[in-house]
Design a protein around this nucleic acid. Structure first.
Length: 831
RNA sequence: GGGCGAGUGGCGGAAUUGGCAUACGCGUACGACUCAAAAUCGUAUUCCUUCGGGAUUGUGGGUUCAACUCCCACCUCGCCCACCA
């Protein structure tokens, strides 16, 4: 008998699939075909030098199963793959390996692609893209200019997070606990002129439109939290003895009559003006500087350690709180709200601050409980329940529950012209420029006369020049600043001498539109054709880990909305369904990483003889696709054994003499029943991505077929066996494509199993003839009875009552109530 | 501190959404084959048991004829965010 040897059959079929191009998506515009489309996408990888391990493989295996199933269900499937190759990881790898990034990327892509190929994923390689290809980044630059044109890209000098190791600025999202997300080094604060995208202008839509998409609640919550919408009121008050008016934002304005002091952020741009002319002007400004330095070093972790200083100024509060002193406070943030806050006894931080500096407090929000209320009035603790608290002031709302009158207070404040409604967001504009070599150059020319001028579209792409030494300088400029030929140019507007922008774009710019390029990857004149984009997009299944929740996914949504506003596309959400797969951890329960030396690569496993099919099966069988799991080498042995059993069964059949000696109808029906029940289970499971249970169903099916085989013989039901095996190879196809294809061919089927029509189940065959009914007496199972499936309720209940064990258990007691769950159980209740 | 999720055998997990808890796989034990081992095939495998049964889905309570599933309280673990007014 032919031995099951993945090392032979897997490369063989990979080659055939590549040559016959069966996984290419059809652009309906040219073919006129009208199959329903399905766009299945996995995050395109950045080939950084770290090889693909079994954790990554799960991502692609899930996508591939979805794509293959869709194809067999008659859909026109787009399942593309490409490379997100600009950015720090690739450049750092190149520096370490002492080669050029171009060379490093080519090398890493080749390795990664080989790894994907040997797993047998059904990608349409004719659409392969690479973000570092000038044909691609030409359009990344084009989109930068689109944002520039729409006044969504701007330059500003501001203090930025700076990574001293990577020698570049980082976006807020890329700073984790004061450390660089890439190298883990502590970040510093530096004043730099940087490019930003105005993602804040889209905060409202980015928040609201989450309602439109089918994403996991967890990811939606993370995005909502990051955007941080907060509905509140904006107050304004004059500063005594000056012409300055200060604005303050409050989301918990219900207790506005409790405000007793004001705090301003130490880095607030208005602080110097505010303290100008006061006695302690210098002292206050120096103190603010000190606070800032400490804050960068220590972060905000130390809750007890609040600090502040009186500015010497007061506001005249128009809402009836009198004159309130203005303090600089370490906990006030310049970039949130207005950077200035009116403070009260009902905010924990304010409360703590007031206690430390002996500031006046006046609680007006009290607990319903009288004893507790007294404690609050005596300022024993901070009470901040804005829902259940009872207001004491103002008179109009005295005695009312804060949560009940919130909207009325809004109305009151507006009518009295004391404040106006205001929405605040936590999200800050997207810092896009990087002082690194390996990125798409920002297509801007700085002219002494005309300022920042867009590179004309005809001059795109601005090609990244090759450099021998491309290491970051650390002086705040990218290495491109050292290439005179690149820098020196002419102004497109006035023709005078000018200099090119030398910063490159954040790698997330490239990935903010790549899903659109896959719809039309070779277009030389446009980023993509509108009709093609609108046919394929939005992405139907976007599959990837949760690590992209607040960066890539937010940026991609932002760009899509800009394109929508520009009329480039007719949809404003790029990913209709997002599926977050669970992470595969190492057998030791930790994340797989080079530093732990616990990564498991598919290459090794394939080399050991398990084969891609067993690995793929294990990735899905290990647990629900969206839950994390520890990789298990023993488990892999299990899926390999399963495939071997399938193989042995089918090959054994094929070697049996085809001339039937006799025919056994009963056996044939049993085989068909087994197979058709499995078709039903696998189909229904796959419709809901129940990969693990679908595979369990296939295993059960094979176990049952083994039993049928050992009892009787292949000769006795030749055609039933054959039909069954053909269906089985189809059911295996989305999970284990190589063995499925081999068996399909061995069974004499023409073409590829992967473009065959998914089998349908026969309702009559799936229906059970005899069913087992459990009999409960007072909630306990006391017996089981067998009845034919079409027995009427009365007859089933009667049969249950007549069962010997039931009679014993009843012991003559009268039955008070009877419940019948069709084809499941009878429940009898006695007194 | 805020948000999200999860707790089921020795282990990964299943349970048609309120209807026979522990499917499927791993591991383990025994048997068959073998001179032997591996591989393979088969049988058993939640726990306790005086073999009649009894207990069991993190803990305690509730609803119900019936609860892993619904409600209330609590415990534990994981992930994300966090001086955001």
């Amino acid at each position: 008998m032919k031995r099951y040897n993945p090392k032979v059959i897997e490369p063989k079929w990979q080659k055939v699939w590549d040559e016959t191009k069966i996984y290419q998506a059809t652009d309906p515009l040219s073919s006129g075909k009208s199959k329903p489309k399905r766009y299945v996408l996995e995050y395109f990888p950045y080939p950084s030098g770290a090889a693909m391990h079994v954790g990554h493989v799960r991502n692609y295996t899930i996508g591939d199963a979805v794509a293959r199933y869709g194809r067999m269900r008659g859909m026109n499937v787009l399942h593309p793959m490409g490379w997100d190759a600009f950015g720090l990881p690739a450049e750092n790898y190149a520096i370490k390996s002492a080669i050029s990034p171009q060379e490093a990327v080519a090398r890493n892509i080749a390795h990664f692609k080989e790894q994907l190929m040997q797993m047998g994923f059904s990608y349409d390689w004719s659409r392969e893209i690479n973000s570092t290809d000038p044909n691609y980044y030409k359009w990344t630059q084009w989109f930068f200019l689109l944002l520039f044109k729409r006044s969504l890209a701007y330059q500003q000098v501001s203090p930025q997070w700076w990574c001293p190791f990577d020698k570049t600025v980082l976006a807020d999202e890329q700073v984790e606990n004061g450390r660089c997300w890439r190298c883990g080094n502590e970040v510093e604060r530096k004043n730099l002129k940087q490019w930003f995208f105005k993602i804040r202008d889209y905060a409202d839509r980015l928040d609201k439109d989450l309602d439109k998409v089918n994403w996991s609640p967890a990811i939606k919550a993370m995005q909502r939290n990051w955007i941080g919408r907060s509905d509140g009121m904006l107050f304004e008050a004059p500063v005594k003895g000056t012409k300055i008016k200060l604005k303050t934002f409050s989301a918990h304005f219900e207790a506005f009559r409790a405000d007793t002091f004001v705090v301003i952020a130490p880095d607030h741009p208005s602080l110097p003006e505010l303290v100008k002319g006061t006695k302690d002007e210098k002292k206050v400004l120096n103190f603010a500087e000190e606070i800032l330095k400490k804050r960068v070093k220590q972060g905000f972790t130390d809750e007890e350690h609040v600090e502040g200083i009186f500015t010497g100024r007061y506001i005249e509060d128009p809402v009836g709180n009198g004159d309130l002193p203005i303090w600089v406070a370490s906990y006030a943030l310049a970039h949130y709200g207005t950077g200035i806050v009116k403070c009260s006894a009902h905010d924990e931080r304010d409360f703590r601050f007031a206690k430390k500096y002996n500031l006046r407090l006046k609680p007006v929000l009290l607990p319903a409980d009288q004893k507790e209320a007294k404690k609050v009035r005596d300022q024993k603790y901070c009470y901040s329940d804005m829902v259940n608290g009872i207001l004491a002031e103002p008179e109009e709302f005295a005695g009312k529950r804060a949560g009940d009158v919130r909207q009325k207070i809004v109305k009151y404040l507006v009518e009295q012209k004391l404040a106006k409604p205001q929405i605040s967001y936590k999200i800050r504009d997207w810092l896009i420029s990087r002082q690194r070599y390996w990125g798409a150059p920002i297509p801007i020319i700085h002219c002494p006369k005309d300022g920042a001028v867009a590179v004309p579209e005809a001059d795109l792409p601005v090609v990244l020049p090759e450099m021998k030494s491309y290491e970051p300088s650390g002086d705040g400029h990218s290495p491109l600043a050292r290439v005179a030929k690149f820098v020196n140019t002419k102004c497109p507007k006035c023709g005078g001498l000018a200099e090119r922008e030398t910063d490159t774009m954040d790698g997330f710019a490239c990935s903010s539109w790549y899903f659109l390029r896959f719809a039309d990857p070779h277009n030389q004149t446009k980023a993509f054709d509108k009709d093609k984009a609108e046919f394929w997009l939005p992405v139907d299944d976007y599959i990837g880990g949760a690590e992209h929740a607040v960066m890539h996914l937010l940026y991609a949504r932002f760009w899509t909305k800009v394109m929508f506003d520009e009329g480039l596309i007719g949809f404003d959400e790029p990913f209709s369904t997002l599926r977050n797969q669970g992470m595969i951890l190492a057998p030791d329960g930790r994340k797989m990483s080079k530093s732990y030396d616990n990564t498991i690569e598919p290459d090794e496993l394939i080399e050991q003889g398990y084969g891609a099919d067993s690995i793929r099966l294990m990735e899905l069988f290990i647990g629900p696709w969206n839950q994390s799991a520890n990789w298990s080498v023993e488990g892999l042995g299990g899926t390999f054994r399963f495939l071997q059993r399938v193989w042995a069964l089918v090959e054994d059949f094929l070697e049996t003499d085809a001339k039937a000696k006799a025919h056994n109808d009963e056996l044939a029906v049993q085989i068909k029943r087994t197979v058709h029940r499995t078709i039903k289970r696998v189909s229904q499971d796959l419709d809901e991505l129940g990969f693990n249970t679908a595979i369990a169903a296939l295993m059960e099916c094979v176990n049952e077929l083994y039993k049928l085989k050992s009892d009787r013989n292949f000769e006795l039901a030749q055609s039933a066996w054959e039909e069954g095996f053909i269906a089985l190879s189809q059911l295996l196809a989305p999970f284990a494509p190589h063995i499925a294809e081999e068996l399909w061919a061995d069974l004499g089927q023409s073409g590829s199993v992967h473009v065959s029509k998914w089998p349908a189940w026969d309702k009559a065959l799936v229906k059970e003839e005899l069913i087992t009914i459990a009999v409960q007496i007072n909630g306990k199972i006391r017996a089981e009875i067998e009845v034919s499936a079409d027995t009427a309720e009365e007859a089933v209940v009667e049969a249950a009552k007549n069962d010997a064990r039931v009679k014993t258990a009843l012991a003559g007691k009268a039955i008070k109530k009877t419940f019948y769950v069709p084809s499941r159980l009878v429940s009898l209740v006695t007194d």
